[in-house]
């Protein structure tokens, strides 16, 4: 019973945080090419759960989150999704040793994951549109996403602790 409750809680937490990350990426704060791109919160959250809940953040789950992200953000359907799925399959093995390492190492691991996601999406978008998307905007967005990882990671670990707090009898 406790195991089932734990699984439901973990699944809910993963889905809610991923959904919130997509919505946060979508919130309007300056529009158009002259504005600074907004970080991709969904990439951070997917990597975080790949480390901390690998049993839930499986490739099919990454597929669902990637699809939701593309449909909500209005990107070419499948470009962000395929980039996320490919990056998670490539990085899957590397996340095992990263789980027990300090934050600095996990941050470096995230740099590799985010770099792979943005590079793949850039290539896939270029192939779909037969036109090279501006690389400077991609670098800015990837950089902002990279810089935000430690902050989100610390917040998410606090949220994880709430779930682990034993029930006390009052």
């Amino acid at each position: 019973m406790k195991a089932a409750w734990s699984l439901v809680w973990a699944l809910t937490l993963v889905l809610v945080t991923c959904g919130f990350a997509i919505v946060l990426t979508h919130v309007a704060l300056g529009v158009g090419a002259d504005s600074t791109p907004w970080p991709r919160f969904s990439v951070i959250i997917v990597f975080f759960w790949m480390l901390h809940r690998p049993g839930i953040m499986t490739v099919p789950m990454v597929f669902l989150i990637g699809l939701a992200q593309d449909l909500v953000l209005g990107d070419i359907p499948g470009a962000g999704l395929l980039a996320l799925v490919l990056a998670s399959m490539m990085m899957g093995r590397w996340t095992i040793p990263l789980r027990t390492m300090p934050l600095a190492w996990r941050w470096i691991g995230f740099a590799g994951f985010a770099g792979l996601v943005f590079a793949l999406e850039w290539v896939l978008t270029a192939a779909a549109r037969l036109m090279l998307p501006p690389i400077d905007l991609v670098i800015v967005q990837a950089g902002m996403t990279f810089l935000l990882y430690p902050v989100i990671s610390v917040i998410m670990r606090q949220i994880l602790r709430i779930g682990r707090t034993p029930t006390r009898t009052l």
Partner: peptide, 15 residues
């Protein structure tokens, strides 16, 4: 009212 945007480098769209 503009309620959302693609917020990224790959698409320039608003909701």
């Amino acid at each position: 009212q503009v309620i959302g945007n693609s917020g990224g480098a790959f698409t320039q769209s608003i909701t």
